[in-house]
Design a protein around this nucleic acid. Sequence first.
DNA 1: ACCTAGAGTAAGTCGATACTTACCGTTAGT
DNA 2: ACTAACGGTAAGTATCGACTTACTCTAGGT
Lengths: 107, 107
Amino acid sequence: MANRYQPLDALAALGDPTRRRIFERLLTGPLAVHELAEGMPVTRPAVSQHLRVLAEAGLVTAHAEGTRRVYAVSPDGIGALRAWMDEFWGRALDGFRAAAEDAAKET
Amino acid sequence: MANRYQPLDALAALGDPTRRRIFERLLTGPLAVHELAEGMPVTRPAVSQHLRVLAEAGLVTAHAEGTRRVYAVSPDGIGALRAWMDEFWGRALDGFRAAAEDAAKET
DNA sequence: ACCTAGAGTAAGTCGATACTTACCGTTAGT
DNA sequence: ACTAACGGTAAGTATCGACTTACTCTAGGT
């Protein structure tokens, strides 16, 4: 039951602003938990909990480094999310086209 | 204060599974509210409320048609979301590269 | 050995939000 | 005009989830 994440989880995970902020900070490079918590408006345990969600969504990975746990972005999660998105985008255009034709019919 | 939506709103909006399901059904073409509510596990007012959120996020548009309100997907929302995503994707790759170099340094 | 730092987990709280039912306005058909 | 269909809104509830403090565990330094 390790990497059982879908793009949906990533979507929900990035829906939260705090989580998005954490993730964005990780985009600049790997960081330990207490480093991440530094500039945040929330406490370190809160950050830990968010990181857990992000990890379950496949958006970040962690590895131990002494007593520190260093988190880094994982391309897997957003990769899947982006792929899903592209397909979505295509279907959205189709849907929009259908809507346009539907509207044209009304004239 | 009409179209003041950012990709962030769209992310949060699509985070909810019910809302995602509504949106996905709209991808097949425009639908009236009661038609949307048909196959849903929730009541029509709930669908209405979700549609409001989706509209505020710029993901759908509505137009009156008699007493019915027909909703359709709007490319604006996901367009912006997709653009944001692509930029994110690029930065994620950079971040991942930074993480990899960081890991290489540890050897 | 001991203490400190780093971080995950438990338990509890509080606000947001996804739902419900009830109601009201509007449009169309007869 | 009357009625029915459609759908948004109000008000209330209840669940979820973001956050806190307190704790426990592990790894390193001295």
